[in-house]
Amino acid sequence: MAADKNIADEPIVDMQNVSIRYGSNPEVLSDIKLSLARGSFHFLTGKSGAGKTSLLSLMYLALKPYLGTVTVFGTNVGFASRDTMALMRRRIGVVFQDFRLLEHLSAYDNVAVPLRIRGMSENEIRKRVKELLMWVELDKSMDKICATLSGGEKQRVAIARAVINRPDMLLADEPTGNVDDDISQKLMKLFVELNRLGTTVVIATHSQELINNYNYPRIHLENKNLKIFPPLRRVITNE
């Protein structure tokens, strides 16, 4: 019981004195300290080039820090084997700003990829993928090759692919940037619902409206460093 409590209390992401640089270029982020509690929801803000994508890359284990330690799901990524990293990544859903879909595959196959990687049966995959694609209103386009989809459709495929595994952590880079308001609201509801079920969510966005509408704290990147701001609505309510 005590052990369970310890695991539950353990931050899902913990960064200590982390610096990032690409090659011999100047540091993008410097001496970052960040701890994300299990089941938390954060917006990630900052100007273009502030390091939002780099910070997300650290979290989804595509990047290793130049300095400092990054611990994800209780494992220090500096010492994790390639196979351990792969298993950890299966617990993370990622929505990229540029979608990064497999353009030669259909919407259905794109969403099915994470499940196939996990070795799920095709019957189960079919059931889960169809259900989710219907939910994001792509049931009529599920057999279309991704290269032929519109920007908004691609974004919904990317989001469906990120959440199909019911990840422990969802990282999204401008996930509502290419969709209309109705779909945007629906997708945010999906993120909120996932968070309610225990998924840790980090959404990088430039949309002040999105931040204003939801009562979540904000990680702000500026001058290679970060600050965490409390939920805006709470501030407004207090005033």
Binding site: R82, D83, A86, L87, R90, R100, P114, I117, R118, R161
Partner: peptide, 16 residues
């Protein structure tokens, strides 16, 4: 390389 990178991010092992 790009596709393999995406597969890795989704949790594919080198073996996959």
């Amino acid at each position: 390389k790009d596709i393999i990178e995406i597969l890795h991010i989704m949790g594919a092992t080198d073996d996959y």
